[in-house]
Design a protein around this nucleic acid. Structure first.
Length: 818
DNA sequence: AGCACGCCGACT
DNA sequence: GTCGGCGTGCTC
């Protein structure tokens, strides 16, 4: 009997086996979607992972595959291997990987609907009041959903009613899968076959000489058909110049002159223009390119450590072009934020329509079309954010990961908690492709892999393209400035002076502040009460533009309070500062300047991000205030001054990567200053200016940073000297999390001994009403047996969760949580 | 993830 | 009694 292992789009651990009915045996194939029933009623679209024929009787009563949904596989065998690896490595269900991988529109949704049972004998006396209401509703409506029933009966739990109605034979269940992807279509017309030869056409003209509108339509058709050399002409073209041609058009159709049909068209804009970008490589770039190629002969991964403005992008493009010419595909991954119009149009000018773009600002329907074009090979290169990893590449030749150090390559929630850089390296290996990592501030582990472990090749670029000078960096001691009265609110006079000069010269300014909102919290001066989120253990941030208090963890919001909840005092004060406040205050000091803000609030809307960037580019905005967002890949050539309001906020958080993050961020922000011709100025404000990391930034000294960081990591046994697994324990009851986390910790200690740390109460101890505990496993010296340790851990956790009172405890695992 | 089933406390 | 809430087990 032919059977199939099917991956279901659910967080279930295994695949499930289904019987392939004889009439579908010819249609099934690995990678195709199939409709299958799972559980009592639900129908899902799963993916066939494996097909096999066996004589052995199945262990279960197998359900049959209901239907095969694709003519051709939509997932390739190599992708399934990749899914499998992700699921094994990051300890997540394959179904969860499938959810992350497939565009949502490719997953079919099933909705339960109920219809009249035609065999019902219409004896309403057997029905109770509720059943009667439903039966009556069905006499006026073709079908009703569960939601409708709830409304009709004003009842939350309608299942017993459904059950009874089914038993009495009043209704039928209809479980439908709805294909969510719909090709976009346009109406096109053709001239009927019989009028295509000249004599027939001449006769037609003669016949229409008393119908000028019809004649005009016909002429327009012939015009467009001639210039496009196609029989098909878009219907709307006919009506562009002719008004009120509706009736005439209809009569042409009814006479059989025009034939109308719907044709599928792409939603993706063809942005190709002839404005092809020619670029020549500098000597350093050419040398680097040669060196990369040389190292690729021995190593499959090469790290490019190149200072900002060294022109890494051109290198990537060159390499991608070569890969494409060799007939393979190339993938270029960037942090979501760096995928700006600027970047994309640059790539378009080199690759034309060979390149696909893939990021979250595309609609679901568009993503399906991109998927199809990658599958068909029409797209030979793709630029995208981390999820572009999942596109159906046939043969990848090269994967580029730019801004390799960027934390947003790691997905934290939901599972699979994968790192796009690490996963990309595996994906490339599957294809026998090369991986190129690039950064001005490589992550410690990548640099380690290059210089110490020698796993990666390394090339370094030190020259700035076009001879741009590095910016001058100045660290301002805030403590001293405050004592000397050289501060206005959050700004040192040095910074204000630099801004003034820049504005006078018509130059621009970027101000970095890593907190959004106006004030991170509010306090009551009388009783020190702080407004907090109702479902998370955090203070609410004040957002001025909405005049609201908001929780940055769950999105909870309430109106700004005017009096204290605890004591009724009206003595409430804003504490701390975010981007909004910086923006407001700058406006006071620089009333003439146009100030723009770029943070999550602005970027959330599809247009907000592009608008602010566009206005800054066009110099309509002189001062741009923003969070991390402004650090990535933006290329402005008129920025003279970059100010970091508080370096301390970057450094003071309890994470072993705090220094690394802060260092990278400060250098990246600095990189925005003075790109062409003019030397830029960077002002970093700090209360503790004498930290080592400040010197590294001042001197733009990556190597010293790295050496120092290696020392710290070794000393405290952090990666790359160990591997980290984070375990999060969640429960709605605080006592339960406590007890459960200690219990689990005890069980894990048996195997992991002192490698297990915790449980600890995280900084934010409750999110969305779940109380949290955290544990960390630091695996040292056993890196080679990571897989085995993960298995042990899994077993211990499974056993723990089998206990009666621990089933409702949620245990989340995060492998390499950085 | 759903969904069923069973147990329990709380109402009309 | 009936309803709704929650814990638990199961889905090929």
């Amino acid at each position: 009997m032919l059977q199939a292992h099917v991956i279901l789009p659910l967080a279930v651990a295994q695949t499930y086996t289904y019987a392939v009915p004889e009439h579908l045996a010819g249609d099934v194939a690995i990678g195709k979607r199939v409709a299958v029933q799972f559980g009592a009623k639900r129908v899902y679209s799963g993916i066939i992972k494996h097909l096999f024929d066996t004589d052995e009787p199945p262990q279960f009563a197998l359900k049959p595959i209901i239907n095969v949904l694709d003519a051709q596989p939509i997932v390739l065998p190599l992708q399934l291997k990749f899914w499998q690896w992700l699921s094994d490595y990051y300890l997540s269900a394959e179904g969860e990987v499938m959810l992350a991988a497939l565009p949502t529109a490719m997953r079919l949704s099933s909705e339960t609907k109920f219809t009249k049972n035609p065999t019902f004998n219409q004896d309403f006396s057997v029905l109770d009041d509720r059943e009667y209401l439903i039966a009556e509703a069905l006499s006026t409506h073709e079908e009703i959903s569960i939601e409708d029933m709830r409304d009709i009966l004003d009842l939350k739990n309608v299942f017993h009613v459904i059950k009874s109605l089914l038993e009495k034979g009043v209704i039928l269940v209809k479980e439908e899968l709805v294909e969510r992807y719909k090709p976009k279509t346009v109406a096109v017309i053709t001239l009927a076959e019989e009028f295509r030869d000249e004599t027939a056409l001449a006769a037609l003209f003669a016949q229409l000489n008393r119908a000028p509108k019809q004649l005009e339509l016909l002429m327009t058709y012939i015009h467009y058909s001639a210039i496009s050399r196609q029989q098909y002409v878009e219907k709307r073209l006919l009506f562009e110049k002719i008004e009120g041609g509706d009736g005439a058009y209809k009569s042409l159709v009814s006479k059989g002159v025009f034939e109308e049909e719907q044709q599928a068209i792409s939603r993706l804009k063809d942005e190709y223009n002839d404005d092809t970008l020619q670029y020549a490589l500098s000597e350093e770039q050419q040398n680097t390119l040669n060196s990369i190629k040389q190292q690729f002969t021995e190593k499959s991964v090469v790290l490019v450590h190149g200072v900002t403005s060294s022109g890494k992008t051109q290198l990537y493009m060159k390499l991608m072009e070569e890969v494409i010419d060799s007939g393979k595909q190339a993938l270029y991954l960037l942090p979501e934020i760096a995928l700006t119009t600027q970047m994309i149009s640059r790539l378009r000018r080199v690759f034309g329509n060979d390149i696909g773009i893939y990021h979250s600002r595309f609609s679901d329907q568009e993503r399906v079309e991109i998927w199809q074009k990658v599958m068909s090979g029409q797209y030979r290169a793709v630029v995208g954010a981390r999820s572009a990893l999942f596109l159906p590449f046939k043969t990848l030749g090269l994967v580029v990961i730019d801004e390799e150090h960027d934390p947003s390559f790691k997905q934290h929630d939901p599972a699979p908690r994968y790192h796009a850089r690490d996963s990309a390296i595996y994906l490339a290996a599957l294809h026998g492709a090369k991986t190129l990592l690039g950064s001005a501030t490589p992550s410690v582990e990548s640099y380690f892999n290059a210089v110490k472990a020698k796993k990666y090749g390394l090339v370094t670029m030190t020259q700035r393209f076009g001879g741009v000078e590095p910016p001058e960096v100045e660290v301002v001691n805030l403590r001293k400035a405050q004592l000397e009265g050289n501060m206005k609110s959050h700004f040192s006079s040095v910074l204000l002076q630099e801004i003034t000069t820049a504005l006078q010269n018509g130059e621009q300014v970027i101000i970095f502040q890593n907190r959004r909102g106006y004030a991170p919290y509010i306090t009551c001066d009388t009783c020190s009460w702080i407004p907090q989120c109702v479902q998370c253990d955090v203070a609410l941030t004040y957002h001025k533009f909405a005049n609201e208090l908001r929780c940055h963890y769950c999105g909870y919001r309430r109106k700004l309070v005017s009096e204290c909840d605890a004591c009724g005092s009206t003595d409430l004060h804003m504490q701390g500062f975010g981007t909004e406040k910086i923006e407001d205050e700058l406006q006071i000091y620089f009333p003439e300047a146009q100030i723009g803000r770029l943070d999550l609030e602005v970027a959330r809307s599809k247009t907000g991000f592009e608008r602010v960037i566009g206005e800054f580019e066009e110099r309509k905005i002189q001062i741009l205030v923003g969070t991390q967002m402004i650090t990535k890949g933006l290329d402005f050539d008129n920025v003279r001054v970059v100010g970091i309001i508080s370096a301390d906020q970057l450094l003071n958080f309890p994470d072993f990567r705090a220094i690394e993050r802060a260092f990278a961020l400060m250098l990246q922000v600095s990189g925005r200053a003075g790109r062409r011709e003019k030397r830029g100025k960077v002002i970093i404000q700090s209360h503790n200016p004498h930290q080592k990391v400040m010197d590294f930034v001042l001197n733009n000294d990556y190597n010293s940073f790295f050496v120092n960081e290696m020392y710290e990591r070794m000393r405290y046994n952090y990666p790359p000297f160990s591997r980290i697994i984070h375990i999060t324990i969640k429960h709605t009851d605080p006592d339960t999390v406590n007890a459960a986390s200690f219990e689990l910790a005890k069980a894990l200690k048996n195997v992991f001994k002192e490698q297990l740390l915790g449980p600890t109460v995280p900084l934010v101890s409750r999110v969305r009403n779940y109380y949290l505990r955290q544990m960390m496993i630091k695996l040292d010296k056993n890196i080679g047996q990571l897989a085995q340790y993960k298995r042990f851990m899994r077993e211990i956790i499974d056993k723990f969760q089998q206990q009666a009172n621990r089933k409702s405890v949620i245990v989340q695992l995060d492998i390499d949580p950085y």
